[in-house]
Design a binder for these strands. Structure first.
Lengths: 225, 225
DNA sequence: CCTTTTTTGTTAAATATTTAACAATATTAG
DNA sequence: CTAATATTGTTAAATATTTAACAAAAAAGG
């Protein structure tokens, strides 16, 4: 058994590298898969091979959070999945509101609600009178003017912005003023927020540009290299 | 004027770091903004400050592709925007097909078509008979069985996957067999493709987990640190 | 026309991340 | 019970990325 059995969260007091943080959801996905397939144990080298990284990196990453494996045996899939879930904060319920009930907003509600447990979209806000009052996926749509009032009376941790880019900053400001500390932003703008607010930006357009660029590079440098 | 005036694409023969590639779309966005505001010139330090990086990094990044600035003057916004667009491959028309006409698919078509020039979704494929035959945003929806035949007869560079995770790999295989070299994947699976095919994965769920984790960390280590 | 200022592109130093190596230890096999 | 094998967590080395420093050169000001 690991020497500290994962009792402690984040062993060292240094800041965890962003590169490590970004790999954790990937580990979670693969571990979920294995768990579903009822695989009981896996070694760092097997798991790393599946993911396409080195075993060293996997062990190094995990070591930021504790010791979850057993020498000579490897990791128990269910235990490691539980630990990674805990590290990711997936063991608690998180309340969200979504601003911008356009196509992307509707798609995200669906995605977020069905795919990931623990994240609950409690309310939707929009400025279109034709949408306000509707119920989308079981979630009520309120007028954007109600935003501050709603947030005052409900426990919400994350605000999701799926508005046009032009109003995203204004929405962010309003969320921040109402005490929201986490913003999941789909609008293609870099939001300016205070230091104590965390923004995760989903870079849809940027991702397509990266693909376009890589294709162009590949073409330029010869298809065989 | 820069000593080589950007005549050459990618000066050195080394591989361009992924970290650099990922920043280029950000540069593009800020330069577009400046261009729209009719700003004519900008120095590396001004632009870097806006973006929130160091001037050194900006100049270092650009130097991978050529010399676009002028000592004592800075960069001409229109020229640099043109160069960055060219590097990103935004100056050419790119044909795309989208597989999976669900909510996310429809949102992406809208997003990709309206927001970014150069990318044209030519056809949509789905297996739902109720959707097949429809026209979405001016784009015809065909039965998924038509995919290979369509790709044989049209010039398509990118396949977009917005199907459920369960069928994403199968769709990817079919795209690859039809000669597609670029895949823009929204399904939460790591696609296995040959080395000459480029996959860009939009990590929607993973991004939410990262946000969740950062919130949890912030909470744990005290709101003031 | 000359001097001062600005700002680039690049070389070098500092920092961060990844990979390799290995001692420690649990498991397995005989 | 002992020896051989497997595999972790961690320390050290290698690699990559970021930042700083600065010579070169253009622009601005007199």
């Amino acid at each position: 058994m690991g020497n500290e059995s994962g009792q402690n969260f984040q062993r060292r007091h240094q800041q965890i590298p962003l590169a490590v943080i970004k790999r954790l959801p990937v580990y979670h996905r693969y571990l979920s898969d294995l768990h579903q397939k009822e695989v009981a144990r896996i070694s760092s080298s097997e798991l790393a091979a599946k993911i396409g990284i080195t075993a060293s990196q996997l062990r190094q990453d995990l070591s930021w959070f504790g010791s979850f494996g057993q020498q000579g045996y490897g990791y128990r899939v269910d235990e490691l999945l539980r630990e990674v879930s805990r590290i990711l904060g997936l063991n608690q319920n998180i309340g969200m509101v979504l601003v911008g009930a356009g196509r992307l907003g509707r798609a995200i509600i669906h995605y977020a609600n069905f795919k990931r447990r623990g994240f609950h979209t409690k309310a939707i806000f929009d400025n279109n009178p034709e949408i306000v009052g509707q119920i989308i996926d079981g979630i009520p749509v309120y007028d954007i003017s109600e935003l501050e009032n709603y947030l005052k009376n409900h426990s919400i941790q994350i605000g999701v912005i799926t508005t046009p880019a032009t109003v995203a900053q204004e929405v962010a400001d309003r969320l921040v003023r109402s005490g929201i500390k986490g913003i999941w932003n789909f609008a293609p703008v870099s939001l300016k927020v205070p230091d104590d607010v965390i923004v995760e930006h989903v870079h849809i357009g940027e991702s397509l540009m990266v693909l376009s660029m890589k294709l162009q590079q590949r073409k330029a440098s010869g298809p065989d290299s």
